[in-house]
Amino acid sequence: MNNVSVISAVVSVSGAVLTAVLGGVFEARRRRSDREQLRRDLVSRYRDPLLQSAASLAARLRNAIRLLSGEEVHQAAPGSERQDEYNRYDSLYRLAAYLGWVQILQQEAHFLDLGSRRRNRRLMRRLGEVKGALSGHIEPSDTRVFLLLGGEQQAIGELMIDPDSPDRPRCLGYVQFRRRYRDDAEFAGWFEPLLEETTKVLEHPEEGAARLTTVYNALVDLIVYLDPKKVWILGPNRKFEHALTTASPDATPTK
């Protein structure tokens, strides 16, 4: 075999090896890209509704704290049966929807992969702080109003998952919630403890404001963590330093 043949063979083999190596590198990059896109889709699928529900609940709690603190909060039809019914069911729904999305997150995604174990742990910590604030495991621990035990939170979350969702799990809409609450006694019964706790808040406004402030501040931490640059939630996210204080200047009244 002459030198030309040897060189040609070497070049041919080298080219084949290089092609195989580059093909493997490109395939690995493609797979990583696919996994990253899947992760981003998962984040968008579960983070966004969780964020929206947390912000919606926080907005209602913010105004409730202001009311309990003796401040005036704008309402469309104050003192009317229509306004009272709206306040009752809309507040109930906002809390239930938040718990529903937390339950969906735990069932479907196990944890929301934000790109690193540290960020995942922080998310779980934020969710746990909201849960603890509602169940009374976070200060003020001596406040015995507006308590929703961990199992009760989970039960309400499970009930809020739409059983007829055609593709992916989602929460009941407001109309679905109102219809089931009206027509399904077992469904409505799970919300009785929450309604009782709401009554306690009204009967003990100082303790109620303290408890709601604890829950609200935990929600703010979650919202800021999920949306630190305020891309999706443009409303106020300032904490209350303590209950029964002057409201934040950027607080938004109930519409």
Rank of each mutant, 00 (worst) to 15 (best):
K131C: 03
I104D: 07
L194K: 00
R66N: 05
Q83M: 07
Y216V: 01
W101R: 14
S165H: 06
G70C: 09
D164R: 08
E72R: 13
G15H: 00
D221A: 10
E27D: 10
P193D: 09
A76K: 12
S12W: 07
F111H: 02
Y86D: 09
Q107D: 15
L219T: 00
G132Y: 01
R88F: 13
A251W: 12
L67A: 12
Y86F: 14
D183A: 11
L114I: 02
F111I: 00
D41I: 11
R40L: 14
P49S: 12
L67S: 12
I161S: 10
D142M: 05
V73S: 04
G115N: 07
L172D: 03
F26M: 13
V10H: 08
L38W: 13
V175P: 05
G132R: 04
L222V: 09
E158H: 03
Q83V: 02
A185S: 14
E71V: 06
A97I: 01
E129Y: 11
G157P: 04
K200H: 03
Y89H: 15
I223L: 09
T19K: 13
R125G: 04
Q176S: 12
Q176W: 04
L68F: 15
Q75D: 08
L222D: 07
L57K: 01
R32S: 13
S80H: 07
E129N: 15
K131G: 06
I233K: 10
A64C: 08
E192Q: 15
S56Q: 10
R126K: 15
L68S: 13
I7M: 14
P253S: 10
L50V: 02
L148C: 02
T245I: 09
F146Y: 13
Y181E: 01
P249M: 07
K230D: 14
G115D: 04
A109Q: 02
L99A: 08
E192A: 15
A28P: 01
G24S: 14
C171N: 07
A96M: 00
G136L: 13
D34S: 09
R182V: 00
Q153V: 05
S165D: 08
L92D: 00
S56V: 00
E72Q: 14
Y216G: 00
A16S: 13
A188C: 03
P140W: 06
L195V: 08
Y46T: 04
Q83S: 05
L147Y: 08
L222H: 07
E158N: 05
A188L: 03
A218F: 05
E207M: 13
A20Q: 06
V224Y: 02
G208S: 11
D142G: 04
Y216N: 02
G189C: 10
L50Q: 02
V73F: 04
I65K: 03
F146K: 00
E72D: 11
Q83F: 04
L57H: 09
D41P: 01
P49Q: 12
Q37T: 15
E81P: 01
A210C: 09
P193T: 06
A155D: 10
L51D: 13
